[in-house]
């Protein structure tokens, strides 16, 4: 599978352009002069110590966080304060959260069909068929009529992935999708993500799963103190880190 993943093609088409982006929380400078270009089909893993701004960075891409300086262009749409633009980008960009954020008052199937029906105006029947297709893909079609509270963490996260996929997004953002799960469940979620990567989805993942990074990513970004410190292909990144901060970080997390 690893070989297959490495063969995945990255196109020249640009999916996301971030230039000179800065963000502050009050007086605290969280993101400093971020420059990042993501091509279609790229699988980028973002890692770094906590508080380094990696979650904030990907949350800026679908405007869950507002940036104060610089520009973000997603799929040719410039992120501005215009709500129409923001909603357009959000419907094209799927996102999975650390705590899944499923809607507990709706069944699994309703969770998956809600956005297609209301945002894309898909007929209910068609939306349900799509939802079942993606639930099969994440291997939980038999849970479709249960509520999120009845599922395990790993199943909930896979539902969350299926829910995002139902919007047929062109880009997927993952914000520490496995941090709240135990080891057995981490694998089932990672398998789903690997499958997605093999199909050529553009993915940005904030994760500490270095095995996943080696296997799937075509680029690893290391962030610290709100800046991109180092980025490289996974092989080079893990075997030959350049900056002392990266070396320290890798020795910490790979050491045990």
């Amino acid at each position: 599978m690893a070989e297959q993943a490495k063969q995945m093609q990255v196109s020249d088409e640009i999916a996301i352009t971030i230039s000179k982006m800065n963000k502050w929380y009050g007086a605290f400078h969280v993101l400093r002069d971020i420059d990042l270009t993501v091509n279609r089909g790229e699988r980028i893993v973002i890692c770094g110590p906590s508080g380094s701004g990696k979650s904030t960075l990907i949350r800026c891409i679908n405007a869950l966080e507002e940036h104060q300086q610089g520009s973000i262009e997603v799929d040719g749409t410039l992120l501005s304060s215009d709500l129409k633009n923001i909603d357009k980008i959000r419907s094209e960009v799927g996102m999975c959260f650390q705590h899944f954020n499923l809607f507990p008052h709706l069944t699994i199937l309703e969770n998956c069909t809600l956005a297609p029906i209301w945002v894309r105006k898909t007929p209910k029947k068609e939306a349900e068929e799509t939802a079942m297709h993606f639930l099969e893909k994440v291997k939980i079609p038999d849970q479709a009529n249960k509520y999120p509270g009845q599922l395990s963490g790993g199943q909930q996260q896979r539902v969350a992935i299926a829910r995002s996929l139902c919007m047929k997004p062109r880009i997927m953002l993952f914000d520490e999708p496995t941090s709240a799960l135990d080891p057995e469940m981490i694998k089932e979620v990672l398998d789903t993500m690997i499958e997605l990567a093999e199909e050529g989805m553009t993915m940005l993942c904030v994760t500490h799963e270095m095995g996943f990074a080696r296997q799937v990513a075509n680029r690893v970004i290391f962030m610290d103190a709100g800046q991109i410190v180092e980025q490289n292909e996974p092989e080079a990144f893990f075997n030959n880190p350049q900056s002392p901060r990266t070396q320290l970080f890798l020795s910490q997390i790979l050491g045990h």
Binding site: G94, F97, F103, A115
Partner: peptide, 18 residues
Amino acid sequence: LPKGQYEGADSLGLDYAQ
């Protein structure tokens, strides 16, 4: 309500009213 519910709805592209 946890903040995640607002973010979950936002991330799917639902507008404020929806």
